[in-house]
Amino acid sequence: MSADLATYNFAYLDEQTKRMIRRAILKAIAIPGYQVPFASREMPMPYGWGTGGVQVTAAIIGPDDVLKVIDQGADDTTNAVSIRAFFQKVASVAVTTHTKDATIIQTRHRIPEQKLTEGQVLVYQVPIPEPLRFLEPRETETRKMHALEEYGLMHVKLYEDIAHNGRISKTYAYPVKVDGRYVMDPSPTPKFDNPKMHMSDALQLFGAGREKRIYAVPPHTEVVSLDFEDHPFEIQTFEQDCALCGAHGVYLDEVVLDDQGGRMFVCSDTDHCEDRRDHGHVGEMLAPNKEAAE
């Protein structure tokens, strides 16, 4: 057994593989929303745990990049910690938790609250890239449906939702139409985040490792959530403000405090929350006068 068993190329992937992935990314950018098949590699983390996102990040990251990794909006969830540590180890890049300082943000299930800017790349981890998958299980058929722009079935699903529930009950992985052409799965982000994809200044890349697909939304591209004229798309709203920083109109996590039904709501985006607190914003839970808050 050779002693150099554990030496790997910069950012783990060999340069040939990176080139192959970059070609797929360029094609994806050229055809917004189209799922480009790519020869996904076995990665040293399990399929379904971000191998697609990690391959995309590995293919685009350079020594000068600053990387942020979030999972569920938080920098300190275990899988985010693990992926960040992976890139620190194999690419020795600078990492950050501050959205505004990052050049590449890899994410699972959220888009940061702070508006992304030109030059930033948001890399999504995608479990099932095919928005039509649960309506039509066959890959050969769904590819044809995309090619021929046959998206009636997608609206059948939304119609059924309204017919049975009185409203579109889909809350995450809410399908969008990109640049007026391809219907796309935005990955399992809550639909709350869908509007952030529209006309974003940042480049958005999507990697699905197990399913071997890459797709993209270039900057300043139209991203429209599917709906009906008389049942327009709407995002979740929260009655409460963040208990820690008092933010309103952001996505909140529900935190269970006891077994008596006590709970509080806090920012899902941990960096956003900390930044607000650093700037003196205070929520109900941290208010100095606790009685007043109660």
Binding site: L153, H155, V156, I162, H164
Partner: peptide, 26 residues
Amino acid sequence: RMTVSAGANVGERLMAVGDRHYGKIR
């Protein structure tokens, strides 16, 4: 489509050609 409602079965073609008003489709 045996697993979607009668209304959606009839409405599918309308949606496929771009009808986007739930009330009218129904």
